[in-house]
Amino acid sequence: MGMVKATIDGSDVLVPEGTTILQAAKGAGIRIPTLCFHERLKPIGSCGLCIVEVAGKATPVGSCETPVTDGMTVTTRSDRLFSLRQDILKSILAHHPLDCPICDKAGECLLQDLVFEHGITGVEPPAPSPKFTAPYATTFLKSWPERCVLCLRCVKACTEIQGIGALSVAEEQDGQRIAYDQDKCVSCGECIQVCPTGALVEKKTELRWRTWEVDKKIRTTCPYCGVGCQQLLHVKDGRIVKVSGVEDAEPNRGRLCVKGRYGYDFIYSEDRLKTPLIRENGYFREASFEEAIDLVARRFKEIIAESGPDAIGAVSCARSINEDSYQMQKLFRAVIGTNNIDHCART
C-alpha cells in the first residue's frame, strides 16, 4: 500500500493511503474534538464536530471521514473552527435538557466535557425534544430520549458490532428519530457502552452513585462461557456496581453479552454458603473449617487404609480458576494417591 505525506498543524506525517485525517492526527499526538466517532465503529459522520481546515478548500471538512491525500496541509485548531464547534454544541444544547445534576452519566459524559472545553455559557433555556420514536425501558436499561444527541453510535453498535439491528433510524418529518425493537433486542448493552451521553443508562441495580465515586475499575475475565471476555468491574465501597467491556482488549474488543454485563451479582446473593456444614442425623449443622477439614482428612485416611486410594474419586470444577483445578489434582495424585480425578468437560 502506498504512503502519503501531509502536514497537520505544522507537523509532517507519513501515513498509509486511506488513513483518515483524524487517525493521522491521533498518530501525531494531535487531538481533534469528536462526538459521534468511536474507535470500534466505522466513521458515522453525524455530528460535524471533527471539522478541520484543509489548505485550498473554502469550507472545513469532517476529519473522521476524510482520507489524507498527498501534500495535504491541515489545520485542526483555529478561531473559526472553535466558533463553528461552539455553534454545533449550542445547537445540540438547544434540544438537550440540562439534566446533569440528576444524570447517571454526569462525570463521564462526552457532551458535558465538550461543552466545558468549548466554554459555552449563557445558552437559552433548552426546548428539549424526544429523539426516540418512543421512550423505552428493558430489564437492564432505560432510555432518556430528550438527552439523545442523535450521534447514532448506538444504532451502529447494535447493527455493525452485535449484528442485531434492534435499533434503527426512523426518518420523520421533523428529522431523525431512534427506533427500538424490543423483540430483536438481546440486552447485550453494547448501545449503552458506546452512548456518549446519558440517553441510555443502566437500571440493573437499585444502587445509585455518581461516576466519580467509583473507587476502582478492575479488569477481569468473565465467569460464564469459554469466550473469556475481558470485563471492567466498577467497584464502589467494595461492591461491584457495574460491568463494562474492556474497550481494546483481546479476545472481545469491548463487547460483552447479557450474562457478562449483567450476570455478576450472584456473588452477593443471600443464599451464599458462609460456613462449612456437616451432616448429622440427616440435617446439616454449621461447623468450623478446623472441624470439617479434620473430618474429611480422617475419613479419607480410613478409606485409604481399608480399601486403597482408588476408592476415592473427585470431580473438579470447570468454572473455577486454573490454580484450583491444579491444586485439586495435586491433592488427589500426591496426597491421596489416585488418578481418579475428572471434571465436567464432558457436559
Partner: peptide
C-alpha cells in the same frame, strides 16, 4: 460435608479460554 468457597471476583487467579488464552481473574 460442605465447604463454602470463594467465588469469581473474590480471589485472584487465571482462566483459560477456548483459544488457550490464559487471562487474569482479579479480586473485587
Amino acid at each position: 460435608v460442605i465447604f463454602p468457597a470463594a467465588a469469581w471476583s473474590e480471589n485472584d487467579g487465571t482462566f483459560s479460554n477456548s483459544e488457550r488464552r490464559v487471562s487474569r481473574v482479579r479480586t473485587a
